[in-house]
């Protein structure tokens, strides 16, 4: 076993790259120094160059990933703190989530279809906006390739977390609740994590988007794909 594939070395590398990019980002305020994007690209490049497989990396990565599910459970805290505000807005939240779910499925599928993607890719891309475990279940139930869906979910999450708030700013969305809610709708946990980095209030709304879009996408995907004649 090569020295670099030791879990402690890979962990140090991952945390070191993340921390230093974050430090540089705070110093320079540069858009391109996004810590999650840079860390993922840098670690993949290093693993490829050193000929280390993902399975070997996972021996180290699993210690970081362990915290992922507990951190989603912890979203219950801001959700509880914002509960009274959310209750007041049930109708706008539910309707906007339904719109987001339908737009997400139809646009994802049609863009891929127009650009000549194969049927397997088109079907696998349908549930891309929701959190990974849900997306995998939906993908399986409609006959997609779950692993392909999982990687698209991650791509959506990275793009949303890197560019989401900038796009909302560009389109002059002012309301903080609308912004953070749609971050959760469009880019699931990663969008929510990004909203959480701004404030716990943003994170709470974003988790509402994550939950409701997950439910609506699970319900709507088979119906919409059947209507489009894809399954």
């Amino acid at each position: 076993m090569k020295l670099i594939s030791e879990p402690y070395i890979l962990l140090t590398l991952t945390i070191g790259i993340y921390w230093s990019t974050k430090y540089l980002q705070n110093k320079t305020n540069s858009v391109f120094l996004n810590p999650i994007l840079i860390t993922i690209i840098a670690v993949i490049a290093i693993l490829k160059a050193a000929g280390i497989s993902y399975d070997t990396y996972h021996e180290a990565g699993k210690y970081i990933e362990f915290f992922l599910k507990p951190s989603i459970v912890a979203l219950g805290v801001p959700l509880y703190l914002q509960l009274s505000k959310i209750k007041k807005q049930v109708v706008p939240i539910v309707i906007s989530q339904l719109v987001g779910a339908i737009v997400g499925i139809i646009s994802g599928v049609l863009i891929a279809k127009w650009l000549g993607a194969s049927d397997a890719v088109i079907i696998s891309i349908a549930p891309k906006s929701v959190t990974t475990p849900l997306a995998i279940d939906i993908s399986t139930s409609i006959g997609g390739i779950p692993s392909l869906t999982a990687s698209m979910v991650v791509m959506v999450g990275i793009f949303g977390s890197v560019a989401g708030f900038k796009i909302l700013h560009l389109f002059k969305v002012k309301n903080p609740m609308s912004k953070s809610l749609s971050m959760g709708t469009a880019s699931h946990g990663l969008g929510t994590a990004q909203a959480m980095a701004i404030s716990q209030r943003f994170g709470a709304y974003s988790s509402m988007g994550l939950i409701l879009n997950g439910l609506f996408t699970a319900l709507c995907t088979p119906i919409i794909l059947a209507m489009l004649g894809l399954i």
């Binding site: 737009v103 646009s107 994802g108 650009l115 000549g116 793009f159 949303g160 909302l168 609308s178």
Partner: peptide
């Protein structure tokens, strides 16, 4: 097609959801 769909659809979801919520 994958990249275009991932980016295009995510932008559309962000805009449609936030606009709907803001207007309502």
């Amino acid at each position: 097609p994958i990249l275009a769909s991932v980016i295009g659809s995510t932008v559309l979801v962000l805009i449609s959801t936030s606009f709907t919520h803001q207007v309502l």
